[in-house]
Design a protein around this nucleic acid. Sequence first.
DNA 1: CGCCTGCTTTACGTTTACGTCAACGTAACC
DNA 2: GGTTACGTTGACGTAAACGTAAAGCAGGCG
Lengths: 144, 144
Amino acid sequence: MLEEPNESPMKSSPKQAENHVYSISDLSREFGITTRAIRFYEDRGLLSPERRGQARIYSPEDRVRLKLILRGKRLGFSLDESREIIEMYDPAHGNVEQLQRLLQGIEQKRAQLQQQLRDIQSLMGELDEAESRARASLAKNISP
Amino acid sequence: MLEEPNESPMKSSPKQAENHVYSISDLSREFGITTRAIRFYEDRGLLSPERRGQARIYSPEDRVRLKLILRGKRLGFSLDESREIIEMYDPAHGNVEQLQRLLQGIEQKRAQLQQQLRDIQSLMGELDEAESRARASLAKNISP
DNA sequence: CGCCTGCTTTACGTTTACGTCAACGTAACC
DNA sequence: GGTTACGTTGACGTAAACGTAAAGCAGGCG
């Protein structure tokens, strides 16, 4: 666990409520991924942690971003897609045209998610049927 | 469009209700994928169409399988995963032990789909928030 | 007959998302 | 001061899912 190098034993300058930080292996352990993967996400522009010398130090915000990346992976998104989605959160879009493109992107993602919802619904139903058939077949094979 | 070579002008032997078949380009057009992709799915064991000479001819069942593959892709499944799911449908599992492994696999997939559902729910909510912020920012920028 | 269209196989190339060393830096500790 | 733990930057390797020619066969047609 990465610890703050407190010069004095007192909590130095509690300027913010959360000054918790993570090392790269902290995050790799927590999420069950390799440090290589985390560095790769940084390479692809999805993370940009602070540095203490050479070492990366991750803020709680970085940790949230990582969670969003992994959620995106569970939904089958590419890293580029996840990056786009994450960029939809921060309000770094002053331009009107950009805001409209953002709204368009949001609408697109929403449509995709609705399609995924439909896909999941049908797959769930089909799994139910498959389970029924399997259970019936089991009952027949166990007590013939 | 691939047509049956009817020796006689009469519909020869209507032994089955559906004797519709598809060429590989029929399917590629219908689903907006390349023939290369379809052949690749066959190579990976997801399809096994009949042959008329060298040419592949696809039945309605093959077409359904292809639809299942593409649905799997939308959900972020690998071709191996999609193959496993498709194999859950057909009742080619006589052995009791295999049936139990099948039930296990079904349960696993169900858990994964439920996780995806949760992920989609939260992402949808976050998209709503992002849209609100964008609209607010737009209103501010348009009539300051 | 030659050409076109559609299909085939073979094979090498590409992108994504990392895995896997290698070689090195640094801080702690015994 | 050597070792151990953890970190770093390359650099090369790899699996998945195709893309992209290249070269050839089969049938229809003007």
